[in-house]
Design a protein around this nucleic acid. Structure first.
Lengths: 148, 148
DNA sequence: TTAAGTGCAAATATTTTGCTGTCAC
DNA sequence: GTGACAGCAAAATATTTGCACTTAA
């Protein structure tokens, strides 16, 4: 993810540990991968990377760990406009939610933080009296290089 | 969908016809269902409704028709926070895009039009030089009745 | 020690593809 | 008449579940 992150290395491990979640070799590997990912990964990509460290990891363990992280609100699940199948992509939860733009031609994903986005969420909470747990804004279209 | 729609009845049929798309009994049924739906439907629900009119319709025809409508920009595809499996929900494209809020407890879906949402899209187009084809904002959380 | 976690196999859910026959225009 | 469309069967994709074995705490 292009946006810089300032969390200490291993913060997912420490965060979960402090909640009393059991730490295994497999989980440690998966958490490290998600934490240091330079772009959004899907379950299959996480599996492949994890197996480089721990060859025996099963894809089920990936799904179970992702679900654990979702439950604890430590990652966000994205669709990125379902550009290639129905899989999901994951990113660690950042302090500030952001918009995801996916280029329908080249597939590049860009992120964008915006005060209007923050304001829109506040508006929904207030005017619709809706308590937000997750807000996801995804845009599909053409990036500046592709619409030339 | 709660938001009122002002299109003439059969506008999906006429719209497609005017583009030279062939009209079959099956398509007519499916289009009518989507057009008059009072809430967001998934492929399986559309199939069940369609089969009441045309018992022979196959689920493949539903998917092919949905894909046709997507291609022509006549419907929007929603995830509604994947509250129950990974299926998609569909709604006819309205003149103004809106936010979808899904209650994680009762499952109710509410829609919300907002000038901030329109403004955010303009901002993305301008500041990121990104030409928007589809913008989808989905929120998961707790509606006013559920968080009592 | 023991409850939580893992791997494996199989199931489920959703959508897509290939092919042959049919129908709208 | 003919090319687009439909139905059926099967495949493909993504994720989840059941169960017996293993391991972190």
């Amino acid at each position: 993810m292009p946006l810089p992150h300032t969390e200490a290395p291993g913060y997912l491990v420490s965060n979960l540990a402090s909640r009393g979640v059991r730490m295994t070799r497999q989980r440690r590997a998966i958490l490290g991968i998600i934490e240091t990912a330079s772009h959004h990964l899907d379950a299959a990509q996480i599996l492949r990377k994890a197996q480089k460290q721990e060859p025996e990891v099963d894809r089920v363990t990936i799904y179970r760990t992702l679900s654990l992280l979702k439950r604890h609100g430590l990652i966000d699940e994205l669709d990125l406009m379902h550009l290639q199948g129905e899989k999901h992509f994951y990113e660690r939860k950042t302090p500030r939610e952001h918009v995801h733009m996916t280029c329908l031609r080249c597939g590049r994903v860009t992120e964008f933080e915006s005060r209007l986005f923050d304001g829109l969420k506040k508006q929904v909470q207030k005017e619709c009296r809706f308590q937000i747990a997750v807000a996801r804004m995804e845009i599909g279209g053409y990036c500046s290089s592709c619409r030339a």
